[in-house]
């Protein structure tokens, strides 16, 4: 699914970072637990939906090869998060929707769960 479609569906906004090629994702993982995110195998075109909004979220996504992050419940990304995301070719988005609501809408629209 194209990122612009994701943004439209969850009334989201891009808050920094970038994806150089193919601005789309195929699979999604939703979690506030970074320990769980680090157990992901074989991530390709993967997006994380999370309410955990700090620098370690971005570091974790860097290690787990996650290309896009959707922060829910109106969490605001910070400048240092954007910087780190840009270094790692990762896109950061925000929505006011809850994790459950955003996940439900995107699942219904065809985005696949990772597991």
């Amino acid at each position: 699914m194209k990122l612009e479609d994701i943004l439209r569906l969850v009334d989201g906004k891009v808050k920094g970072g970038s994806i150089a090629n193919e601005p789309e994702v195929d699979k999604v993982f939703a979690s506030d637990l970074m320990s769980d995110v680090l157990t992901i195998k074989n991530a390709q075109k993967l997006m994380l939906i999370t309410g955990l909004c700090n620098l370690q979220t971005i570091r974790t996504c860097e290690m787990a090869e996650i290309r896009a992050v959707l922060f829910v419940r109106g969490k605001k990304v910070t400048e240092d998060m954007v910087e780190l995301a840009e270094e790692n070719d990762m896109l950061l988005m925000e929505t006011d929707y809850s994790l459950f609501r955003a996940s439900g809408i995107l699942y219904q629209a065809g985005l696949q769960p990772l597991y």
């Binding site: 506030d32 637990l33 970074m34 320990s35 769980d36 995110v37 680090l38 157990t39 955990l52 700090n54 370690q56 979220t57 974790t60």
Partner: peptide, 15 residues
């Protein structure tokens, strides 16, 4: 609060 401390670190390192 940082999203860690779930007791999964060492087992994940091993795997």
């Amino acid at each position: 609060e940082m999203g860690f401390g779930a007791g999964m670190g060492l087992p994940n390192m091993q795997s």
